[in-house]
Design a protein around this nucleic acid. Structure first.
Lengths: 104, 104
DNA sequence: TATTTGCTAAACCAAACGGTTATACATACT
DNA sequence: AGTATGTATAACCGTTTGGTTTAGCAAATA
């Protein structure tokens, strides 16, 4: 049964975003990932669990090692959510601009 | 002095994303926003504070009312972060696809 | 002036978060 | 067989989160 974590919540943590950045370059074992951070292996294990629960990382067991691969499909939801508002922030007649101009 | 909240953390909460969705359509007073949710007005006040601290909402005092306007510029960071990985998830030879195919 | 309205602030609370250390365990090495 | 390695799990802990209720206050209304 999948916990079906929210991807928005998963990427809220800077360490997890950094893990995704690392894994974007190459698949790494859990320990190798952990070496890139100044925190314990169990801490990284926990982050990795959250990332897998929302589908951002896939773990393949290979012997005693865990090969972690980033899976970016889940980021589509995030990109789309943010992008739907793009017209607002690229529009020069944006309400924000108006407000700022009034106050300056 | 701005608290400079992390926008990723701000949008992690579904209620806050819903507030942004509401304000994308029109500027609303704090109370009007609160009426759209099944929680107390102080709770919405707190969410609104977080949203303003990271620049996602701008509040203009008008008499005793607070007019809340969404400001989407801060979402650019989110969109760009997610989009940098787009090539990975649109690529059919994506590593995820490979992994899934191997397992099925 | 008294009352209502819109909102903030304070105090509180349970649950979740993000980390730790210690332990356990399966796999690989000698 | 014994040891070392890679990882998971459990127990624990302080802080943060997301909500509540109550009280307070300034602005609008009667």
């Amino acid at each position: 049964m999948k916990a079906r974590r929210d991807v928005f919540q998963a990427i809220a943590d800077p360490t997890r975003r950094a893990i995704i950045g690392l894994l974007a370059q190459q698949t790494l074992t859990l320990n190798t990932v952990a070496e890139n951070f100044s925190m314990s292996q169990p801490a990284i294990s926990k982050h990795m669990r959250i990332l897998t629960e929302c589908g951002l990382v896939i773990i393949v067991k290979q012997g005693r090692e865990r090969h972690c691969t980033a899976s970016f499909k889940a980021l589509e939801e995030v990109a789309q959510w943010a992008e739907q508002y793009r017209r607002f922030w690229t529009d020069r007649l944006d309400t924000l601009e108006q407000l700022l101009n009034e106050e300056e």
